[in-house]
Nucleic acid binder design. Structure first.
Lengths: 205, 205
DNA sequence: CCAGATTTTGTACAATTTGACACAAACGCA
DNA sequence: TGCGTTTGTGTCAAATTGTACAAAATCTGG
């Protein structure tokens, strides 16, 4: 047993580190320290060192971390050292925004299909994609072997869509609808609905 | 001292409870239990009881919680028993999606203005809004007294925009750009970038 | 209408998880 | 070589979650 169980909370911070490191690399930096990285992401240096050290000794005393090396390691750990196919359900405004989003490039993701149940939208072009019918979704996802989905459907349809996605073999759902989804334990869901996020802040105003 | 310091992590769960409760209310339910609510949101019943009891004794043994009463209380606690004005910076696809989003209604928020620095977009209509120039943003926000902003600008512009928002008196920022923002301690930021959210899940695939 | 069974809350206490602190060891540099 | 920097980690403190149960309310069956 070489690998101990890594807490979710640490995994959740890694993408933040990765994002900051990639930004540093874009700016031409070669090395950084836990101190500097911490200032960028608003997390204590000690915490960052401990998080990273869960996976190996990637730094060097006196010098810090090689940015490129750490990026490579984090991408490997998070399994984004490859490109994941992602399907998008819901061709509304938000669906359009995600379809055209260029931030997936170089971050390990690629949208491969868009579905909607509105017959008026089916067949429409969004960028290079043609909106497909949700009736054919299950088969299409299965045959493509896609494991990741993003849902931008109305709250009322979200659970039904999620059920279908799970049935099709999807294992990770990024849910933009304002509802909690009921899924099996081996399926991960991330929620990201604007109202909920705003409500997390108003308490402090 | 009647009110003890409530941990952030509890505050973060309240909007989730609220969302589920509002959904139950829409479906005509009158009461619920910590058990039932927990099943809906995927959190243990004990945890929910403990969270809620931080603010008072809102339930009744043997019966559970009155849904409407709990909604009212949570809205009050989260300060969404009113309507907050929100400004939107960035009139791209995502900006359009948020401007047209109807999930803010009944959740305590209302978009009141949209800004962009692209002179081609300034003056454009988005729904009932006219895109305004970021040059006039600082004054406009100040005069309207807006405290909440959503940013859908490119990563490269996000920090600069955030600085201006802080200067204009904004105290809460929902940031869709894939960068960590550096803001004073009294300003809250919530991050919500698709790639980062997806990367939080790939580890488990 | 009532007594016992059932439900469900709120909380005391225990266990676990998470974060802060401190420092020896390693490295670079002058 | 000696000094300043920075990592990785052991130890401790704090925060968070889980468990269990008394008390309160409702329900049920006669």
């Amino acid at each position: 047993m070489n690998v101990k169980k890594i807490p979710d909370i640490i995994i959740g911070r890694l993408p933040v580190y990765l994002r900051a490191l990639q930004r540093m690399a874009d700016n031409g930096a070669k090395t950084t320290s836990s101190q500097e990285l911490g200032e960028h992401v608003g997390i204590s240096a000690a915490q960052i060192r401990k998080d990273i050290s869960q996976f190996g000794e990637f730094g060097k005393q006196g010098t810090g971390y090689s940015i490129q090396f750490l990026i490579d390691k984090l991408r490997e750990i998070l399994k984004v050292d490859r490109v994941w196919d992602v399907v998008l359900i819901g061709a509304g405004d938000l669906g359009h925004a995600l379809a055209n989003y260029n931030g997936f490039q170089n971050r390990g993701f690629r949208v491969v299909a868009i579905f909607d149940n509105d017959k008026n939208k089916v067949g429409q072009k969004i960028g290079e994609f043609t909106v497909e019918d949700t009736d054919t979704m299950l088969e299409r996802i299965k045959s493509m072997g896609v494991k990741i989905a993003m849902t931008t459907v109305p709250a009322s349809a979200a659970q039904e869509v999620a059920d279908k996605l799970v049935q099709a073999g999807v294992r990770a759902i990024l849910n933009y609808a304002p509802v909690s989804l009921n899924v099996p334990e081996n399926v991960k869901v991330q929620y990201t609905d604007p109202s909920t996020n705003l409500q997390r802040m108003t308490y402090y105003l």
